[in-house]
Simulated assay, not measured.
Amino acid sequence: MQVLSCVLLPTFPDSPGRKVAVNAVAIAAQLDAALDAAVIDVDIPDVSNALSSLLLDLPVKIREAEAASRSRGKHLLAAVATEAEQRKVTLTTQELKAAPGLMGEIAAREGRYFDLCMVGWARNSEALQSAAKEVIFSSGRPTLLLPDWENVGDLEHVVVAWDGSRVAARTVADASPFLERARAISVVTVVDEKALPRQDIAERLALGLKARGLHASAEALRARHNPIGTALQEHAEKIGGKLLVMGGYGHSRLRDMVLGGATEGILSDLRMPVLMSH
């Protein structure tokens, strides 16, 4: 059964770079997946009154912001279409609208119709990071965070962050399309961060993956008081990992997302493609 993937591209106040569009198509090609590219343009309610219109010309500013958002969206869709044609990826596209504060929520709702969500992550954009967080925790689908500054390349070496938890198990299952195509899988357990169910959990998961015909090995990692998200990414890069797979830990407290340490570290300092499930 073909994987149905989507790339979710909010365009206000910031938009992902062209690199995210290119990377999304590259991932779809690697998975032999169909791809839906959904840009989410801003729709700003006109709440101006006579005084604000006179002083700020607010309706004009709203139209300008909406036009800029649509323009960014069309450029992103054009980039996706060009790349999809070159890579022979089946592509559909759509243009959605959302109020300024609902970009992430609309993206998450749209992502529920697909097997895999892809979202861009940018170092200097709180808006894009917030939208990515919303998709991870509200879409109910595995979400692949794509850096906007480099080509992701072939995700042939997958690093699985494993602590034996329910969330981690869910993520490993969701990562099956990547694991089945990987040339190497490194199961990494951080052994000095928290109490673990037992000492050999990485070996047990690696053994199960090998029983399925996959090339898996187990490793223990000591964070040594470094932030857990940083330690995982640095280790993954050190051993040649191309994709980090990990659970997304967090819960909502009156709509403010309270994140686990590793999740917060990844979402604040992404260094490589990361697949998360919640």
Score class of each variant (00 low, 15 high):
residue 102 L to K: 09
residue 256 D to M: 13
residue 164 G to W: 03
residue 257 M to W: 08
residue 17 G to T: 11
residue 69 S to Y: 02
residue 17 G to K: 04
residue 201 I to L: 14
residue 32 D to Q: 12
residue 92 T to N: 12
residue 123 R to A: 15
residue 110 E to F: 02
residue 263 T to V: 09
residue 268 S to Q: 13
residue 228 I to H: 04
residue 91 L to W: 06
residue 221 L to W: 02
residue 184 A to S: 14
residue 193 E to Y: 12
residue 53 S to A: 13
residue 5 S to A: 15
residue 115 D to S: 07
residue 247 G to Y: 04
residue 18 R to I: 04
residue 52 S to A: 15
residue 95 E to H: 01
residue 102 L to P: 00
residue 195 A to L: 14
residue 262 A to R: 00
residue 197 P to I: 12
residue 192 D to E: 05
residue 79 A to D: 08
residue 143 T to N: 12
residue 256 D to S: 15
residue 278 H to R: 05
residue 240 G to N: 10
residue 212 R to H: 15
residue 92 T to M: 11
residue 82 T to Q: 10
residue 204 R to F: 14
residue 54 L to R: 08
residue 120 G to R: 00
residue 271 R to K: 07
residue 223 A to K: 03
residue 121 W to M: 14
residue 94 Q to M: 13
residue 213 G to A: 08
residue 3 V to N: 09
residue 150 E to V: 07
residue 225 H to M: 08
residue 272 M to C: 08
residue 122 A to P: 00
residue 84 A to I: 09
residue 123 R to W: 03
residue 155 L to A: 06
residue 63 R to G: 14
residue 237 E to M: 15
residue 194 K to Y: 05
residue 36 D to K: 06
residue 31 L to I: 09
residue 210 K to A: 15
residue 181 R to S: 10
residue 245 V to W: 06
residue 200 D to C: 07
residue 133 K to F: 00
residue 101 G to M: 04
residue 41 D to T: 12
residue 95 E to F: 00
residue 173 A to Q: 11
residue 238 K to M: 15
residue 131 A to P: 00
residue 147 P to L: 07
residue 122 A to C: 07
residue 235 H to P: 01
residue 222 R to I: 12
residue 125 S to P: 00
residue 163 D to A: 07
residue 94 Q to F: 07
residue 211 A to E: 13
residue 188 V to R: 00
residue 238 K to S: 15
residue 63 R to K: 15
residue 238 K to W: 10
residue 126 E to H: 06
residue 14 D to R: 05
